[in-house]
Write a protein that binds this DNA or RNA. Structure first.
Length: 804
RNA sequence: GGGGAUGUGGUGGAACUGGUAGACACGCUUGGCUUAGAACCAAGUGCCGAAAGGCGUGGGGGUUCGACUCCCUCCAUCCCUACCA
């Protein structure tokens, strides 16, 4: 009796060999390099399905590239700082450090048991001083370059817990732990001038091979807009309010100005006016997240102030609007209710004037958002929006009341966090004045917590911050996006404690393929791109972009929703690895959906993947490759199998190479396995039968190897290696184009675009011959009957369509 | 509110450049094997219809000889929205 397929045993043996032989350790050599990076995980405790999917995709591509003679570097590490460690520490009385390190140990074993081919010699953890000392040094270099500054900025403040809350810790405006009404508070924080690179972040998107939707999201996020800053003189004052607008052509339609509740004037007025003070207090109740602010009801209050229209000198009321952001533009918005949705809503609510100054062909009901021709605009009447914008800006420039301006939506990056479990910001305060520490004073180590102490913010840790009466340490830590913005580069030199980036980095960078969740399409990728450019300008790395190609995978869903603990719909990969083996889990993940799409978890489909593994097992196990010369003549059945085998190879290769469409590649391999005639598998099959079978098996095992490497390699050893000592990963099979040719094709016959018949015909026939064959099909003839044919359309080797 | 996606049988999905809709798999049905079950093997399986045939890719409209694919419009779901990672 044949031995049964026992994935656990096979997989553990092969994984041991990989470790013993250092199979995946990568060093620079003469071959073309391929740096394949999957987004490193936050060590939350155990792998979830999203990780399994992400890392399997990376591993499949890495193994495919390795078989095609690329020098592949595939490292793995840990995004180890972050909020969950602090929450766990409070809940379970474990230190964030111990909790994190235990999680890492467990998850690393899980990654190994999935058969992922990582070069563990370059493993890194962002929570270790060996990593973050370089991050602190980069921050210093940024500072020296003038890319760092401090300014006041808004945070969610829990007045009971006296702590800053993340957006996700604010639930319905209340602190998640205390339940207290959260306030928006302004505190002093460190910022990095990512906006200095706004233009380049936009233009160099053209250089990368990224999905168009991700590029679009980044472009929209950066949000370059052309417009003008327009000054409005405040009545009975020497001061002005300056508003940015992308539509200077609508300037005659301005009926109010709205200023931010955080604007200096608002704060000033609040001191004198109870109503305004109450209004500002009300504004503070809205969560700091953009989505919440945008969805909040538009509210305003009249300041009683007036400004003068720069051209007509008409008096215009100034309002405070809760929808005006201080951080964007000037914190002042010119309200043109006739031509802006939001202004229209606001003006209707507060009975402000609504004037039409643009007419459009597309729409006549206000508000008219489109550009068009100007009306009610004095000497600009009749001009197009485009021409009028230019002229109005020019005229305002002459009056010193405005200027052309390019504005970005992108804001500078606030990197301060008031937490314990993060990288300390390497700054000391001498008599209150900040000073960045020199390289020799780095790293500033995160202090350990006292036994059984909950993670207190550094500001409450006297030993840490109180260096002397005059000298205090900065107690903010970095945003964890800082940690993940440059790890891709550090991987190349992670085992080198003397250099941030050693000569290996020149060889491996940039990352050739970066794989990760679509949820990172904006922030993480934008920050990393910024880091790379800034590091480039300090001569630390080369090239303009960190990630040449990007593959964004979709979510893993269950019952149509993202798997999450709170919904209670998580599926633990571990039990599936144990029950079915890593090969089955990997196959399932790759087969069930294409990488970019979301994947709906289905229990029973895993069974199907397992069944296919067993099918391969029973096809190949205990079979031996036999040396047989290529037969000179073959039967139709044999020719068919060879054609199928090579067309499968062609399809799998192109699916791997150009589309990362693993589900269709696997379907093709399944088709090939199903296609093999039963008789070819018999012991007494003819030599030419066996030749064709051998060829098919070689193609099946090799094309399957990137996806399910354990079973492929195990079977390969018994089947082929014993015979030729050739490793399965040493080469990708060679395609025989000559075997793919066919002399016939299936002609589809349509009448008025509806299929009425199909017929196998010789490839060499002329169109007129095909027409007569097509017309002789009974169903076609009866449909046409005596109706005259108006037109005949023939698409080569596909379709003939009679139009009647 | 803004930005980006997605929508095809009972289910996951395929159709790559406007040219056979439903590959491959799951599930289900019937049969075989079995004391029984599991596993495995064989056949069938979009919907309506006895059949001929008709209908069918979220809804509605359009372009075309021909539309899952292109255009307009509406609906639903998911992701991101700068302190979750």
């Amino acid at each position: 009796m044949k031995p049964e397929y026992n994935p656990t045993e096979i997989e553990q043996n092969i994984q041991r060999e990989w470790i013993e032989n250092n199979t995946f350790k990568a060093t620079p050599d003469d071959r073309e390099k391929f740096y394949c990076l999957s987004m490193f995980p936050y060590p939350s405790g155990k792998l979830h399905m999203g990780h399994v999917r992400n890392y399997t995709i990376g591993d499949v591509i890495s193994r495919y590239k390795r078989m095609n003679n690329f020098n592949v570097f595939q490292p793995m590490g840990w995004d180890a700082f972050g909020l969950p460690a602090e929450n766990a520490a409070i809940a379970n009385k474990v230190s964030p450090k111990d909790w994190t390190n235990q999680n890492i140990e467990h998850m690393k074993q899980q990654l190994i048991s999935l058969g992922l081919g990582y070069d563990w010699s370059k493993e890194l953890r962002t929570c270790e001083p060996e990593y973050y000392k370089w991050e602190q040094l980069i921050f210093k270099k940024f500072y020296d370059k003038g890319l760092v500054y401090k300014k006041k900025s808004m945070v969610n403040w829990d007045p009971v817990d006296e702590t800053v809350l993340a957006n996700e810790q604010v639930i319905d405006g209340k602190g998640w732990r205390s339940g207290a009404q959260v306030e928006i508070k302004e505190i002093d924080q460190w910022f990095i001038k990512i906006t200095d690179y706004a233009d380049e972040l936009l233009t160099s998107l053209d250089e990368v091979d990224w999905p168009e939707n991700v590029k679009t999201m980044q472009r929209n996020w950066i949000g370059k807009s052309h417009g003008a800053e327009i000054k409005y003189e405040i009545e009975d004052s020497d001061e002005c309010l300056t508003a940015f607008s992308t539509r200077p052509d609508t300037i005659f339609g301005v009926s109010f100005l709205a200023i931010s509740p955080n604007h200096a004037i608002s704060l000033d007025l609040a001191d004198k006016n109870e109503l305004i003070k109450d209004f500002l207090d009300k504004c503070k109740e809205v969560k700091a997240a953009e989505a919440d602010m945008a969805k909040a009801e538009k509210l305003g209050i009249d300041t009683g102030l007036f400004v003068l229209h720069p051209i007509t000198k008409k008096k215009i009321p100034v309002w405070i609007g809760n929808f005006v952001l201080l951080d964007y533009g000037t914190g002042v918005v010119m309200g043109v209710p006739g031509h802006d949705e939001r202004d229209f809503e606001f003006a209707t609510k507060y009975n402000l004037e609504i004037n039409q100054v643009i007419i459009s062909d597309e729409q006549d009901e206000l508000p008219v958002i489109q550009t068009g021709k100007l009306i009610n605009s004095a000497k600009y009447n009749g001009k197009s929006s485009e021409d009028a914008s230019i002229e109005i800006i020019e005229d305002l420039e002459k009056l010193n009341l405005g200027e052309r301006l390019v504005q970005f939506r992108l804001r500078d990056w606030g990197v301060s966090r008031q937490r314990y479990w993060g990288c300390p910001i390497p700054v000391v305060y001498e008599n209150g004045e900040p000073r960045i520490l020199d390289e020799k004073d780095l790293p500033v180590k995160l202090p350990d917590l006292k036994e059984n102490s909950p993670p207190i913010p550094l500001s409450q840790n006297q030993d840490f911050y109180n260096l002397s009466n005059e000298l205090k340490r900065e107690t903010d830590t970095f945003d964890t996006f800082m940690d993940s913005s440059w790890y891709y580069a550090r991987f190349t030199s992670a085992d080198n404690n003397d250099d941030m980036f050693d000569k290996n980095s020149k060889y491996w960078l940039p990352v050739d393929l970066y794989i990760g969740g679509i949820e990172h399409a904006i922030l993480h990728l934008l920050y990393s791109r910024f880091f790379h450019k800034a590091l480039r300008d300090m001569d630390l790395v080369e090239g303009n972009e960190p990630f040449k190609k990007l593959l964004t995978q979709g979510m893993v869903l269950k019952d149509g929703a993202k798997m999450s603990k709170s919904k209670g719909n998580t599926v633990d990969p571990q039990s599936y690895i144990e029950k079915y083996g890593a090969d089955t889990v990997r196959l399932y993940m790759m087969f069930t959906a294409p990488p970019e799409q979301s994947l709906e978890w289905s229990e029973s489909s895993v069974e199907g993947a397992s069944r296919f593994m067993k099918k391969i097992w029973s096809l190949v196990n205990e079979r031996k490759f036999e040396q047989i010369d290529e037969p000179l003549s073959l039967s139709e059945e044999e020719k068919g199998l060879r054609r199928k085998a090579h067309s499968t190879l062609k399809k799998v290769t192109s699916d791997f190479e150009t589309r990362y469409s693993f589900n269709t590649a696997i379907a093709a391999i399944m088709e090939l396995v199903n296609f093999i005639p039963e008789s070819f598998k018999q012991d007494n099959a003819s030599a030419s039968n066996k030749f064709c079978l051998n060829e098919a098996i070689v193609i099946i095992l090799k094309t399957l190897n990137p996806i399910s490497p354990h079973i492929s390699q195990h079977l390969w050893k018994g089947f082929y290696f014993d015979f030729l000592e050739e490793d399965i990963e040493s080469s990708w099979p060679i395609l025989r184009e000559d075997l793919l040719e066919v002399s016939e094709f299936n002609l589809i016959v349509q009448v008025n675009g509806k299929v009425r018949g199909k017929v196998m015909v010789d490839k060499n026939l002329e169109q007129k011959d095909l027409e007569s064959i097509a017309l002789s099909i009974e169903n076609v003839a009866s449909t046409i009957s005596n109706t005259p044919i108006k037109k005949t359309i023939y698409i080569k080797e596909k379709i003939i369509n009679f139009v009647i």
